[in-house]
C-alpha cells in the first residue's frame, strides 16, 4: 500500500466522514436527550446546556456531510453512478429528515416559540437519521446490489432481511447516544452544572455497553456476510484492541467521576481507531465487489487540483474554526452563560 493519490483522496474523505460522525452524533444525541428530558420532566436540567452548545454550531455540522459527498464524487466519480443510482430512497429520506431538522432548529431558536411536538420531532429525527445514513455502510459490504440490464439495482428484500443491516442500525443508534452523552457530560461539567453533569454521566454509562456489544457483534457477523473483509479486519486486530482499551479508559473515568475532558478525548481515540481500522480493512473496495478506489478514481489533473484546493481551504478554515471554538466552546463565560447573548 504505497501513498498514492487514490490513498490520499480516500484518507481526506474518510477523515471528513469521521468528523461528521462525531459532530453529528453529538448533535443528534443532544436532540434526543432534550426531547427525552421534556417528556420525563427533566427539562429544567438539560435544555439550557444543550441549547447553549447547539446554537452557534448547528450549521457547521451539516457542512461536514456536504464535504464528504461532494468530495467523494470529485475524487471517485464512479461512486456517483453506483451509489447514486441505488441509494435514491434511503439518502432522499435522510435529506428530508435533515431538512426538517435543520430548518426547524433555526425556526425554533430564532423564531422564539417553543413547541413540544417540535422537540419530539427533532429528537426522533436524530434517531432516524443515523439509521438511514448507516445503511450506506451496510450496502458497501456487498451482496445487496446486483446488476440488471447493465444498471446497478438495490435488493431491498435482502437488505431488510439481513441481520447485518439491523446490527449496524443498532450500533449507529447506541454510538450516537454514547458519544453525545460523553461530550455533554464534559460540557456540563465545564459549565459547573452539577445536576446536568450527573444525569448525562448516567446516560453515558447506560449507552456504553450496547455500543461495545453491537460493535463486536458486527465484526462477528461479517465473518458470514463478507469473509474477505472479516479476514482483513483480523489482520488489523491491534487497531481494534487499542480501540477497546480506550473504551475501557473512558468508562473508567466516567465511573470515577474524573477528568471528563480526558474521557472525551479517549472516546475520540476509541472511535478513530475503530473507524480507521474498519476503513483500512475495507481497502481497496468502495463497494464490494464492484468498485475499488482504483477503478473509480478521477484523472490525475483533477486529483491534484482537488488536493491543492483542499490544502488551501484548510489554511482558511482551521483558523476560523479555532476562532469559533475559542469564542463559544472554550469560552468559560459563554459556556456558563455569564455574558449577555442577545441576537
Amino acid at each position: 500500500m504505497n501513498l498514492n493519490l487514490e490513498i490520499i483522496g480516500i484518507i481526506v474523505l474518510w477523515t471528513f466522514l469521521f468528523g461528521y460522525i462525531i459532530v453529528a452524533s453529538i448533535d443528534f444525541g443532544a436532540g434526543f436527550f432534550n426531547a427525552y428530558g421534556i417528556f420525563t420532566n427533566k427539562q429544567h436540567i438539560l435544555t439550557k446546556i444543550i441549547q447553549r452548545y447547539l446554537s452557534p454550531v448547528w450549521e457547521v455540522t451539516n457542512v461536514f456531510l456536504v464535504f464528504f459527498f461532494v468530495g467523494i464524487v470529485g475524487f471517485f466519480p464512479k461512486t456517483a453512478y453506483y451509489y447514486g443510482t441505488t441509494l435514491l430512497v434511503p439518502v432522499s429520506i435522510a435529506v428530508i429528515l435533515l431538512g426538517i431538522r435543520g430548518s426547524y432548529y433555526a425556526f425554533e431558536t430564532y423564531g422564539a416559540r417553543s413547541h413540544k411536538g417540535y422537540a419530539f420531532m427533532y429528537g426522533l429525527s436524530g434517531l432516524l437519521l443515523p439509521a438511514a445514513l448507516s445503511i450506506v455502510l451496510t450496502i458497501s459490504e456487498g451482496g445487496f446490489i446486483f446488476i440488471e440490464n447493465g444498471n446497478p439495482v438495490l435488493d431491498y428484500m435482502a437488505l431488510f432481511m439481513s441481520p447485518l443491516t439491523w446490527s449496524i442500525v443498532v450500533l449507529s443508534l447506541s454510538a450516537v447516544l454514547y458519544i453525545s452523552a460523553v461530550f455533554l457530560t464534559w460540557y456540563a461539567d465545564k459549565a459547573n452544572d452539577t445536576p446536568a453533569t450527573e444525569l448525562l454521566r448516567r446516560y453515558a454509562l447506560i449507552w456504553a455497553l450496547p455500543t461495545i456489544i453491537t460493535a463486536g457483534g458486527i465484526i462477528y457477523e461479517l465473518r458470514f456476510h463478507n469473509a474477505d473483509h472479516y479476514e482483513e479486519i483480523l489482520s488489523f486486530w491491534w487497531m481494534f484492541l487499542i480501540s477497546a482499551l480506550l473504551f475501557i479508559g473512558t468508562v473508567w473515568l466516567l465511573w470515577r467521576r474524573k477528568n471528563y475532558g480526558i474521557a472525551f478525548s479517549l472516546l475520540i481515540g476509541q472511535f478513530a481507531f475503530a473507524f480507521y481500522g474498519y476503513g483500512i480493512s475495507h481497502y481497496p473496495y468502495l463497494l464490494y465487489p464492484h468498485l475499488t478506489i482504483y477503478d473509480s478514481f478521477t484523472n490525475e489533473a483533477m486529483a491534484l487540483a482537488l488536493i491543492i484546493a483542499f490544502i488551501a481551504g484548510l489554511a482558511l478554515l482551521i483558523p476560523s474554526l479555532y476562532l469559533l471554538l475559542k469564542l463559544f466552546l472554550f469560552n468559560k463565560d459563554y459556556v456558563r452563560g455569564n455574558s449577555e447573548h442577545k441576537h
Binding site: V66, A80, A309
Partner: peptide
C-alpha cells in the same frame, strides 16, 4: 455526475469551503 465529476468537481468542492467559511463567521 460520473462524467462531470471528472472535469468540473473542483468548483463544486471549493463551494463547500466558501460556504463553510460563511457559516462559521455568520455564527460568530
Amino acid at each position: 455526475m460520473e462524467l462531470a465529476g471528472n472535469v468540473i468537481a473542483l468548483p463544486l468542492f471549493m463551494e463547500t469551503f466558501a460556504f463553510f467559511f460563511e457559516a462559521i463567521f455568520l455564527g460568530i
